[in-house]
């Protein structure tokens, strides 16, 4: 099997190949549409010299359109980079936290251990969390209680992890808010205030 779906490598190759296929088909779709249109639509760009002008509400255009834009856009972009990267880190954490919570729920209703073995559902959950060997081995008296304690502890440890991580993020957010970087009109008010100060004194 060329693209073995059950392996991580096969799956990611498949995903990239499908992505490439989708992008190609999307591009071809647009291209074919434009190509068909080519045979039916008029093409007369030089009908009038003013036709090629940039539209500025009917007036002759003034200057280049490549104007300087406000610094505020850069501040927003910087904020975005910090926050979005941090949010991206939440996702792998979320799967571990969710799965350990599910494991503890399972142990609570005594479904995690059957006999002296983990139940099939519990084994699959451990597999999905990345534990390779789900056989119990030498332990002879595995109980649901054990699974509950350990999975709940894992959930709490991940909770503390993300708590610290999130606290740092929120602290930064609070600082940025206090500094006024979240105010869109800050630049203007600040300038006015500074401009007014010497005159007041």
């Amino acid at each position: 099997m060329l693209l073995a779906e059950s392996t991580a490598l096969g799956s990611s190759i498949g995903a990239v190949a499908t992505l490439a296929l989708f992008v190609t088909i999307g591009l071809v779709f647009l291209f074919v549409n434009l190509l068909v249109g080519r045979f039916v639509r008029p093409h007369n760009p030089d009908a009038h010299p003013e036709k090629g002008d940039i539209y500025e509400c009917g007036e002759p255009t003034i200057g280049s359109s490549f104007v300087q834009f406000d610094l505020r856009f850069y501040v927003v972009a910087l904020l975005f980079i910090i926050f979005d990267v941090e949010v991206a880190f939440f996702f792998p954490w979320a799967t571990v936290f969710g799965k350990s919570e599910q494991l503890s729920e399972m142990a609570q209703v005594e479904q995690a251990v059957k006999g002296n073995e983990l139940s099939a559902d519990a084994k699959r959950l451990y597999r999905e969390m990345g534990v390779r060997d789900t056989s119990v081995g030498a332990v002879s008296d595995l109980t649901n209680e054990d699974v509950y304690t350990s999975s709940k502890m894992l959930a709490r440890i991940t909770l503390i992890d993300i708590g610290v991580f999130f606290a740092v993020l929120i602290l930064g957010f609070a600082y940025v808010w206090k500094r006024g970087d979240l105010d869109w009109v800050k630049a203007v008010t600040e300038q006015r205030r500074l401009a007014r100060l010497p005159a007041d004194e």
Partner: peptide
């Protein structure tokens, strides 16, 4: 710890701890 200890429950824990 993962290789030596074959108890899955403890595996999950020792990994995280």
């Amino acid at each position: 710890p993962i290789e030596e200890d074959s108890v899955a429950v403890q595996n999950g824990l020792s990994l995280q701890e």
